[in-house]
Design a protein around this nucleic acid. Sequence first.
DNA 1: ATAGTCAGCTTAATCGTTTAAGCAAAGAAG
DNA 2: CTTCTTTGCTTAAACGATTAAGCTGACTAT
Lengths: 346, 346
Amino acid sequence: MSAKRTSLKDIAQEAGVSTALVSYVLNGKEKESRVGPEIATKIRAIAIALNYQPNHVAKSLRSGKTQTIGLIIADISNPFFANIARIVEDEAKRNGYTVIIGSSDENADKSRDLLNVLINRQVDGFIIVSAEDSAQQVQLLKEKNIPFVLLDRYFPDMQTDFVSTDHYRAAYDGASHLITNGYRRIGMIAYKSAMFHMQERIRGYQDALKDGGLPFQKGYLKKIRFTHIEQEAKVAIDELTKTDKPVDALIFATYGLAINGLIYLNEQKLNVPDDVAIVSFGQAEAFDLYYCPITYLKQPIDLLGQTSVSLLVKKLKESPDEPAQILMNAELVARNSSKPKRIHQH
Amino acid sequence: MSAKRTSLKDIAQEAGVSTALVSYVLNGKEKESRVGPEIATKIRAIAIALNYQPNHVAKSLRSGKTQTIGLIIADISNPFFANIARIVEDEAKRNGYTVIIGSSDENADKSRDLLNVLINRQVDGFIIVSAEDSAQQVQLLKEKNIPFVLLDRYFPDMQTDFVSTDHYRAAYDGASHLITNGYRRIGMIAYKSAMFHMQERIRGYQDALKDGGLPFQKGYLKKIRFTHIEQEAKVAIDELTKTDKPVDALIFATYGLAINGLIYLNEQKLNVPDDVAIVSFGQAEAFDLYYCPITYLKQPIDLLGQTSVSLLVKKLKESPDEPAQILMNAELVARNSSKPKRIHQH
DNA sequence: ATAGTCAGCTTAATCGTTTAAGCAAAGAAG
DNA sequence: CTTCTTTGCTTAAACGATTAAGCTGACTAT
C-alpha cells in the first residue's frame, strides 16, 4: 500500500497550525495574509520534507477551473493533426494547462459526444478543428459562454475566435504555380463537403484558373466522400486521366486524398510529373520520400497551434469581448512534382 | 453569462427532497437505499428537465478516482505513436476513461515531469512507452503503487505489467527474410541506446545472421544518437555503402531512422532494392508511397493498444497481484524493397 | 486608563458529490 | 398493547483546497 499523499492538513498538523495558514504560505500569500515569517519558513520546510503535492482535483472543485484544454481534431493518427496536437500540447504546458485530445473522425455525432464528455470534465476551454455539420455545436458553445477557439476551419457567418490558414489563397497559389510552370489542364480532387475551408480551397483553385486564362472545366473538379476515399479516389483519377483530354496536373485538397491518389497513380504507372504534375495540401514525410518529392502547401502548423493556445489562454484570463480572427498564409514548397512542364511523348 | 450548471442541490430543491436521495436515484441505487418509486420517478424527470450533468471534478474528489489514464509516449507526431494514441483513446473511451497524452521526447527528465504533472492531476493509472534512462521512474511508480502498464518497451529485470512486441523475433524475422532472398551483406542502423527493445532488435539481427551462416561484421552495425539522427544517419549510410564491401541490404531499426535513411539514399542515387534492399521497423503511409514499397515489420498496433488499456482497466478494478506480461509478434510485410536478389551490374 | 490599530493566527463556509448513520412513521408479530 | 421490522426519508461528514470573516493579544495613541 502506498502511503497516503500528504495534504494541507498533514502539514498543518505537523506545524501545529491551521490549514488556512499553510494554504496562504504555499500560495505565496503570506504578505497579504500577515503570516509570521518564522512559521512561514517552518511550513515551507515541512511541505518539502513531506513532499507535498497539491491535489489538483480539490483545487479545481474549489476554483471551478481545471487548467485543462480540450482539443477536438478529426483524427490524431493523421499527421497534420498529430503535429498540431504536439504543438498545442507543448504550448499549453508552457502556460500551465493540460490538454485532453479527442478525435471526431469528421463526424458531427462523435464531435458532440466529445464536447459533452469534456464539458462534464470541466475543461476550461476548447480548441476545435470543427467537423462537418458541427456549426450548431459551436453555436451552442457560444451560447453557453464556454470559451473556445476554432482552429484551421471556421464558419464565415458566425462571430467566433479563430486561427486558420487562408485556404483560398493557398489553393490559389497552388494552382497559379502550376499554371506558371506550364500546365494547362489542371484538375482538383477535393472532399464533398459543405465546410468552408474546403469550399475556399475549391474557390481558390477556380479563381486561379480563371485569372490564368484557363476556363474552369467542371469535369476537372472531383468531389469525393470522406467515408469512401479509397474507392472514389481511384474512380476520380481514372476519370481525370483516362480520357482524350487527360489532366496534366492535379491538386489534392488534403493529405489523405494525396496519399490515396499517389498510391493509385503508382499502380497505374502514371509518372509524376511527366504524366501528371502534383500539388497537394497537407504535409508529411511521405511527400519527401516519394520518388518525385511532392510540392505542397505548407501550413504554418507551429504558429497555428501556438496562436490558438495563446488566444484561448488570453480568453480564459481576460475574456475580451472582441473575438480575435486570425488568418495565416500557407507557404508553397515547390518540389519536382510540379517542375516546369516539358513537352514529351511516351 | 451562461446560467450556472444544475447540481444535485438544484434537483433536490425542485423535488423537495435531500441531495442524498437525488444521488441515490441518479446512481441507480434506489433499491439498496429504499427510495420510494414515485419520488424516484419525479427526481429522474426533474434531472432530465434541468439537463443535469454530474460534476466530474466533485465526483473525482470524493471517490479519489478521476477515470483518467495518462499515456506517456515519445512523440505524438511520430506516426507509430499517433496510431497507438488513437487506439488507446478509443479503447479507453469504451471503458469510460479519458486519456491525457504526454510526449517525453525519449527524454528522462521530460518523462519525469510528465509523470509528476499527471500524478498531481490524479490520473488513475498510466500506459507508458518508457524513455531512455527511465527505469528508475518506473520503479518509483511501482513503489508508490501507482497502477501502470508498459507499452512496447519493458525492463527485463523488473517485474511489471507490460504489453510489447517481441522485438527480438521481429528483427530475427526481418534479417532471415533478407538472407532467404539472397542478400549476404546485411547492415543495420539502430539507435545508440541501452533500452531493452533496441538491444533485442540488434540481438535478433545478429542471431539471424549467425543462424544463416553469415559472420556478424561489427562494421555493418551502426548505432546513432537519437538526438543527431540526420547527420549521423548520413555518415552511417556512407560508411556502409561507400566501401569496397558495401552492404547489399539494410535494416532500419525504427521508423525515424528509415525516413532519414531513405531520403539520403535517394540523394545518393542508391537504388532500392538493386543497390540496397531495405527492411524497416515502423509503419506509415510513407512506406507505401516510396517508389519501391518498403518491406516492414508490422507491429500489431491495434492489439497492443487495446490490450494495454484493458490490462490497465482490469488492474484498476481488481488490482490482481500477478503482473500480466504479454508479448506479441510483429508481422513481416514483404514488399519490393526486399525482393529476391538478382545479380546485376550497373 | 481606554480605545484603537495591527499583527498573527483560527474558524468555518464553500465547491458538488457520496454514503454511513440516524430518525420517524407505519406495519407486523407477539 | 407493546416490541420489532421495515420503509422512506434526512443529516452530516468527508474528499482537499481556498478565503472571507472573526478572534486574541500586544502595542500605540490620547
